[in-house]
Design a protein around this nucleic acid. Structure first.
Length: 265
DNA sequence: CTCAGTGTTCAGTG
DNA sequence: TCACTGAACACTGA
C-alpha cells in the first residue's frame, strides 16, 4: 500500500479526523518489532491527555505534533495504514496502536507484515531516520540543476537511485517504475549516463506523477488509464499497456521491475 | 505448499 | 569512506 501518495492519503485522513482533539486513551500491543526504541507503555503515557496540533509527512514517514513533546512517528512498511472509525468493534485486524479521541473518534494503525515502525521522537523532522532522507518530490523538489548534480554522482542503475530514500524520499517500487515508463528511460541505465534532456524528463515525470496520484487521493481507480500502473500487476507474459506495448518483469536493483523495452531506452 | 511482495537495514564487496 | 548488491526480516494471500 504505502508509497508517498498512500502515506499522504493517510496523513490527510488523520488530519481531518484527529487534529484539534485530545487523546483520551491509547491502546497498544506488545509487538516489540513494530515499537522501535520505545516501550509500548511509555508510548501510551506520552500520548495520553495530549492535544494533536498537526499531522505531518516527509517521504514515507508520518508524525503527529502534540502540545508537548516527544511526538509519535510512524512508518507503514509494506502493509501499514491508518484506519478511522468510532465503534471499538471495528478495530482492524493486525492493529498495533489505537488512539481514542475525546469525541469518540478512533484512529488505528494496522500492520500485518510487521515491517512498519512506531517511534517516539523529540523532534522527528530533525533527527534520524527522517533527517537522513533526501528531497520529498511533493514538498521540496530540487531545481533541475541540483537534481542533475545528484544523479551525476551515482553510478548504479537509475531504478535503484529512485528507490534510494536518501535521494528521493517517498518513491517506492510502483512510483519508480511509473516515472521511468513515462520518462521513457530503461531502468538499468546508469544514473550518471542520462542526458540532460532525460534528466529533465525524469524530474518532471516524478513531480507530475506524484502530484497526480496525491490529487486523486492515491485511489488507483482514478489513476490515468495511460499509466503503466493499472497494467503492471500479475506477471502474465502477455501483459500490455493501454497502448498495446508489451510489459516485461525483471529483478533490477533487487526489486521486481515492470517495464516496456519498446518504449524505454 | 510455494512464492512473490507498494520497504528498510545491514553485512559484504569493490 | 562511499556506492552498490543481496540477503534478511515477518507474514499474508494468491
Amino acid at each position: 500500500m504505502p508509497e508517498l501518495p498512500e502515506v499522504e492519503r493517510a496523513r490527510g485522513l488523520a488530519e481531518r479526523s484527529v487534529v484539534g482533539k485530545y487523546i483520551v486513551k491509547v491502546a497498544t500491543t506488545g509487538d516489540l518489532i513494530v515499537y522501535d526504541g520505545v516501550a509500548p507503555r511509555r508510548f501510551a503515557s506520552a500520548l495520553r491527555g495530549r492535544r494533536i496540533e498537526a499531522v505531518r509527512r516527509f517521504g514515507k514517514y508520518l508524525w503527529m505534533e502534540l502540545d508537548r513533546r516527544p511526538w509519535p512517528t510512524f512508518h507503514f512498511g509494506m502493509t501499514g495504514s491508518f484506519r478511522v472509525y468510532r465503534d471499538r468493534r471495528d478495530r482492524p485486524r493486525f492493529w498495533k496502536v489505537e488512539l481514542l479521541m475525546d469525541d469518540g473518534t478512533r484512529l488505528a494503525m494496522p500492520n500485518a507484515r510487521r515491517l512498519g515502525r512506531i517511534r517516539l521522537l523529540h523532534d522527528p523532522e530533525h533527527e534520524p531516520p527522517i533527517s537522513n532522507l533526501g528531497f520529498d518530490p511533493l514538498l521540496n523538489m530540487p531545481p533541475v540543476k541540483t537534481f542533475a548534480a545528484l544523479l551525476a554522482r551515482r553510478k548504479g542503475p537509475i531504478k535503484g537511485v529512485l528507490l534510494d530514500q536518501s535521494f528521493a524520499a517517498g518513491v517506492g517500487n510502483w512510483v519508480a517504475d511509473e516515472v521511468l515508463y513515462q520518462a521513457r528511460i530503461a531502468p538499468r541505465r546508469r544514473a550518471r549516463d542520462l542526458t540532460p534532456e532525460e534528466v529533465r524528463r525524469l524530474r518532471s515525470c516524478l513531480g507530475r506523477i506524484v502530484r497526480k496520484a496525491v490529487e486523486v487521493d492515491a485511489d488507483k481507480y482514478r489513476f490515468p488509464k495511460t499509466w503503466l500502473f493499472g497494467h503492471r500487476w500479475g506477471r502474465s507474459p502477455d501483459a500490455t499497456t493501454a497502448r498495446g506495448e508489451t510489459i516485461i518483469h525483471e529483478t533490477i536493483a533487487g526489486r521486481t521491475t515492470a517495464w516496456v523495452p519498446q518504449r524505454q531506452v
